[in-house]
């Protein structure tokens, strides 16, 4: 257990808070990979997910493709692309982002399409009968009501990407993985542990922030439904996805 003490002392040491290998810089790099990945993946997956959810088309294909994507070992895909691209260190970012996007798509896609599909068909029907266009139905009815599940997907994706961005260091990128990957071969287990702790703390903090966002975006009317006992099933299916992540 002494290693934990060493690790905390390492973290608190002022000289480790400056320079390119300093903690702030590594965290920023880590956040940058995560942000870029989640942005790209969200644009792709949420758009697709809303389309699938709204039209009900291609759902079977989406389920099997995302299932297959989940079976792909991230580390393998990463080094394969890195070797294949072979563009040298400064281009390591491209395979890294591709791999992380592949990782982030399944939860995002699932959150988006299951969110839209969880909206009561009668509500959508009523909206259509009132004269909403399909576009208005999507944005004014389905997306607001699906938002908690969409954010649940984003939350899962962010967590996975934060965790996995660690391995980017293996193909010589920065981020918090650097501490782990650099220290392992020289058996500097204190620094390894520092990396592990920092990634965990970062993940927990981000998760906390996202949970908060998720709470805030549950539409007020839906929150009212959830507190009434007759509607437990809705509550459950929604919370299942979000908290499972």
């Amino acid at each position: 257990m002494n290693l934990f003490g060493d690790a905390f002392r390492w973290i608190l040491e002022p000289s480790h808070w400056t320079g390119p290998n300093g903690i702030p810089n590594r965290i920023l790099e880590h956040l940058a990979y995560t942000g870029l990945t989640v942005l790209i993946a969200t644009l792709i997956a949420v758009a697709l997910g809303l389309y699938i959810g709204h039209t009900g088309r291609f759902r079977g294909i989406a389920v099997s493709v995302t299932g297959a994507m989940r079976a792909l070992p991230t580390l393998g895909l990463l080094v394969y692309l890195a070797v294949l691209f072979g563009l040298g260190i400064q281009f390591a970012l491209i395979p890294t982002i591709i791999v992380l996007v592949v990782l982030a798509i399944p939860p995002l896609l699932a959150g988006a399409y299951s969110g839209v599909q969880s909206v009561d068909g009668r509500t959508v029907d009523a909206a259509r009968s009132m004269g909403m266009t399909e576009w208005q139905i999507l944005w004014k009815v389905e997306v607001p009501l699906a938002l908690p599940l969409i954010l649940g997907g984003i939350r899962s994706a962010v967590l996975q990407v934060v965790a996995t961005a660690t391995v980017a260091a293996y193909i010589s990128l920065g981020g918090l993985g650097r501490y782990i990957i650099d220290a392992l071969p020289v058996r500097d287990y204190t620094t390894v542990l520092v990396g592990a702790l920092l990634v965990t703390i970062l993940a927990l903090v981000l998760d906390g922030i996202l949970i908060l966002c998720q709470r805030l975006t549950v539409p007020a009317g839906v929150r009212a439904i959830r507190s009434s006992p007759g509607q437990r099933s809705t509550t459950k299916s929604a919370s299942t996805v979000s908290t499972a992540a």
């Binding site: 009668r122 029907d125 004269g131 839906v222």
Partner: peptide, 19 residues
């Protein structure tokens, strides 16, 4: 869409927007 906007529609489960 235009047609529906000039016709009122009331359904059994009220079909109100919950949000």
């Amino acid at each position: 869409v235009a047609l529906r906007r000039r016709i009122g529609y009331v359904m059994q489960n009220s079909g109100l927007l919950p949000h």
